[in-house]
Design a protein around this nucleic acid. Structure first.
Lengths: 206, 206
DNA sequence: ATTCTATTTAATAGCTCTATTAAATATCGA
DNA sequence: TCGATATTTAATAGAGCTATTAAATAGAAT
């Protein structure tokens, strides 16, 4: 049975670590700093998670799961392929917007640490394989019908990801360069969401 | 007068630093490692550049200059706006492709180090301001003519950057997940270049 | 050959970081 | 209350890092 003084120390460490890792990545975040933000002794970080690596992985996996949780809106034969694609793009955009630091964390850690990538890909790639196959079939069926120009699913995927991620990847840069207010950035986000949908749907036309 | 044993030590340090900084960013690269790759004593890195920060800035500025060197192909009234835009997109894509690690370096350093961003933006943003104004005027003229749907230059810019950068930002991820060969990745790049041009030009239609 | 300067080296100060340990303290059940 | 267990703390080992220093070496100029 656990019995901490005030609240849940382990939880506070997790929250502090999440904030800091998302802010600066694994390398620039120290367990000393995590402890300071969590309001506890530095040794406690290691008491609960033994290594900084373990702590990071707990958070990274959780975020990976969230990030890949959007799947093509397959259900409902009452809606057209285009309509369901639109909904998927919007859902993906919304998740990225609500977790706007995840893209940076991902690219940062997966680029500098190949091993992390290998472990992750095993779990996620195979889990998505079946879903991909189904959507690919639907896409090719649409192409055969002539409603969409010839293309592969991977092309569509790259386009969606490119358009939906980049705004948030360069968010800190835009903020400093343009001095844009939070309110105006929110407006820009809402505008880009519609813009992205428009661009992508346009790009499918035969 | 300089007189090193073999070759130019300073140059070798610069080259080693460039490789490593592009690979892993500022924080994960040590002067010890730079010296090892450059084939010299670690103290020499500090002898020539005094601080790691100085060395980094030398490389970062050079890369920033390269990265922002593409400007809208203004010259030549014989070519249409669309044709010149196409050439600009392709030139931008080519520069990114030839320096595919720069986007990662940029986003990594500018996100984790606000100060670097502030220094950089002062130099570059003001230098580009005039060029932007001119292209914005041309764009609005096209819109008035009815050849392009109503939009602002910043929208077009975000779209171009999004599509042109992301493939290279996620390159390490794609390589591990898909086990794609270098040759096939080159093919993917060539394909995406045309795809991006197509998507962007399509997105302008009224 | 000698002197002057530039380059290179080994050694190390001083710092921060991760992780561990032993001791102290708190909490629970009996 | 008491003992067992969980949590917390201070201290520190051990490693790596940046930057400096003093001494050694090489090359050019006189």
């Amino acid at each position: 049975m656990k019995h901490n003084k005030e609240g849940n120390t382990e939880q506070q460490i997790l929250e502090a670590a999440e904030t800091l890792f998302l802010e600066k990545g694994f390398a620039l975040t120290s367990t000393t700093e995590i402890a300071k933000v969590a309001g506890c002794n530095q040794a406690l970080v290691h008491y609960y998670f033994r290594t900084k690596e373990n702590l990071f992985e707990a958070i990274f996996e959780k975020k990976a799961r969230l990030f890949f949780s959007v799947i093509f809106q397959n259900e409902g034969a009452d809606r057209s392929f285009e309509q369901r694609l639109k909904e998927t793009i919007e859902a993906h955009f919304d998740i990225v917007a609500a977790n706007s630091k995840i893209p940076f964390l991902f690219i940062n850690e997966l680029t500098t640490n190949q091993q992390r990538l290998i472990t992750l890909s095993e779990e996620f790639v195979s889990a998505r394989e079946e879903a991909f196959r189904k959507v690919e079939q639907e896409l090719q069926a649409e192409i055969k019908k002539g409603t969409i120009r010839p293309m592969e699913l991977i092309d569509l995927l790259i386009t969606v990801i490119s358009l939906n991620l980049t705004l948030f990847l360069v968010k800190p840069i835009i903020k400093v360069i343009t001095n844009i207010s939070d309110e105006d950035f929110q407006k820009l986000i809402a505008h880009r969401k519609q813009e992205n949908v428009k661009i992508i749907l346009n790009s499918l036309k035969p």
